[in-house]
Amino acid sequence: MEHPALDLSQDAARLTAQLVDFPSVSGEEKELADAVERALRALPHLTVERDGDAIVARTDLGRAERVVLAGHLDTVPIADNVPSRLDAEGRLWGCGSSDMKSGVAVQLRIAATVPAPNRDLTFVFYDHEEVAAELNGLKRLVEHHPEWLAADFAVLLEGTRGKVEGGCQGTLRVRVETTGKRAHSARGWLGENAIHKAAPILERLAGYTPRQVDIDGLRYREGLNAVRVEGGHAGNVIPDHCAVTVNYRFAPDLSVEQALAHVREVFEGFEVVPTDSAAGALPGLSHPAAADFVAAVGGEVAPKFGWTDVARFSALGVPAVNYGPGDPQLAHTREEHVEVAAVLLAEERLRGWLTA
């Protein structure tokens, strides 16, 4: 199906509907990426670059500050919810409407309608966010073209229901392992039960008190939890191995290395094997651009519980927040939708911040 060119003259809600009608499941973003690139290249005040299905557009006005507005183009698989549908209550339904084509529509509207912002702008549209991290288009840009992402502040327009969420938690997963001696369960005294040896691991988790950390006026609550237990061979065998997978969600004042050192301390005496990790992101709300942004969009600022791509900006030394019109609780659902009023308000607030 051939889709019409993106019409950046329509408001962000109507543009969201047009974006939803471009299917762009992860790995199939090319058609939408082509349309976004064509629309941006038609704007004379922008310089446009492309890497795969990621597009970066920049103003170059010599402003004192540069801000990144970023969003991903891909969606999870469609669940009979394309094309888009607008109901009588002002809700726009469709795959990606909340996560996060409404945020992308706001980016495109700002790109088209604010040719002389009070800060230089970098617009980033990237691919493969909804799949394995090694495929992530923003990760690829960080590795291949970090200079394209250089800025003083960044806003990731992931859905936050119109509230500013600062930074994000880091995450670390480890396997805490025990070993025993295999035997027939009818003669259990001849073996050593590795599952039984895991009991102290669970006891330490049950008695653990997570930190609560204040950063830039935001309180991040940590968590250390067992998320999987593996052990056993058969119903008549004493197991000789057991592993408890533990997930540590840590405040962004810790590095991955510090988080791992803490987990090793908690489980001293056990073998701790790291399996994956991602650093958190400091909110950077003390930066003048961040303070102005919070003042412009209003409302209470909250910490981001969970990991988002703001961490990729933080790794480059760019403080970043999450802010978008979508509702994260509707992401990936068959009933995904976004409030039209929320999309229009996000567009209005960003324009006000960038033209004041």
Rank of each mutant, 00 (worst) to 15 (best):
residue 318 V to A: 08
residue 6 L to H: 13
residue 62 G to F: 08
residue 166 G to R: 03
residue 240 D to F: 02
residue 308 T to F: 01
residue 93 W to G: 04
residue 49 E to V: 07
residue 70 A to G: 02
residue 184 H to S: 13
residue 120 D to Y: 08
residue 29 E to V: 10
residue 79 A to M: 12
residue 5 A to H: 14
residue 315 A to K: 06
residue 171 T to L: 11
residue 268 E to I: 01
residue 202 L to V: 02
residue 192 E to Q: 12
residue 277 S to H: 12
residue 57 A to F: 00
residue 92 L to P: 10
residue 229 V to P: 09
residue 352 G to Q: 07
residue 257 E to M: 07
residue 142 V to H: 04
residue 241 H to S: 14
residue 99 D to N: 15
residue 152 D to W: 09
residue 177 E to D: 04
residue 89 E to K: 14
residue 323 Y to R: 13
residue 290 A to H: 10
residue 280 G to W: 12
residue 128 H to I: 02
residue 274 P to I: 06
residue 309 D to Q: 09
residue 197 K to V: 01
residue 258 Q to S: 04
residue 51 D to F: 05
residue 347 E to H: 12
residue 127 D to Q: 15
residue 99 D to S: 13
residue 198 A to H: 01
residue 41 R to L: 03
residue 331 A to W: 14
residue 221 R to P: 02
residue 209 T to C: 04
residue 295 A to I: 02
residue 217 G to Y: 11
residue 25 V to D: 12
residue 312 R to V: 07
residue 209 T to E: 04
residue 111 A to G: 12
residue 127 D to A: 15
residue 76 V to H: 09
residue 316 L to C: 09
residue 114 V to F: 08
residue 43 L to D: 00
residue 69 L to G: 03
residue 136 N to C: 10
residue 191 G to W: 13
residue 51 D to N: 08
residue 20 V to I: 15
residue 204 R to C: 00
residue 314 S to L: 03
residue 248 Y to T: 01
residue 224 L to D: 00
residue 201 I to Y: 00
residue 274 P to A: 10
residue 84 S to W: 01
residue 130 E to I: 14
residue 243 A to Q: 02
residue 240 D to Q: 03
residue 138 L to R: 00
residue 10 Q to K: 15
residue 79 A to W: 05
residue 313 F to E: 09
residue 36 V to R: 01
residue 120 D to K: 10
residue 142 V to Q: 06
residue 195 I to W: 09
residue 263 V to T: 05
residue 173 R to C: 10
residue 28 E to Q: 12
residue 46 L to I: 00
residue 54 A to S: 12
residue 191 G to T: 11
residue 45 H to S: 04
residue 82 V to N: 09
residue 234 A to Q: 12
residue 92 L to N: 12
residue 287 H to Y: 07
residue 124 V to Y: 05
residue 92 L to D: 12
residue 98 S to C: 10
residue 277 S to D: 09
residue 7 D to N: 12
residue 85 R to C: 07
residue 259 A to H: 01
residue 333 T to C: 11
residue 160 T to Y: 00
residue 283 P to G: 10
residue 138 L to E: 01
residue 291 A to C: 07
residue 61 L to A: 03
residue 110 I to A: 13
residue 75 T to C: 06
residue 313 F to G: 05
residue 249 R to M: 03
residue 171 T to K: 06
residue 305 F to C: 08
residue 274 P to D: 06
residue 175 R to D: 05
residue 87 D to M: 07
residue 168 C to G: 05
residue 156 L to D: 03
residue 307 W to C: 00
residue 261 A to M: 03
residue 284 G to E: 08
residue 336 E to W: 13
residue 121 L to S: 04
residue 147 E to K: 07
residue 167 G to W: 03
residue 132 A to C: 06
residue 205 L to V: 02
residue 307 W to Y: 05
residue 284 G to D: 07
residue 352 G to K: 06
residue 201 I to A: 00
residue 303 P to D: 02
residue 261 A to F: 03
residue 66 R to S: 10
residue 204 R to E: 03
residue 5 A to K: 10
residue 169 Q to R: 05
residue 291 A to M: 06
residue 208 Y to L: 00
residue 111 A to W: 08
residue 291 A to F: 11
residue 263 V to A: 00
residue 25 V to T: 15
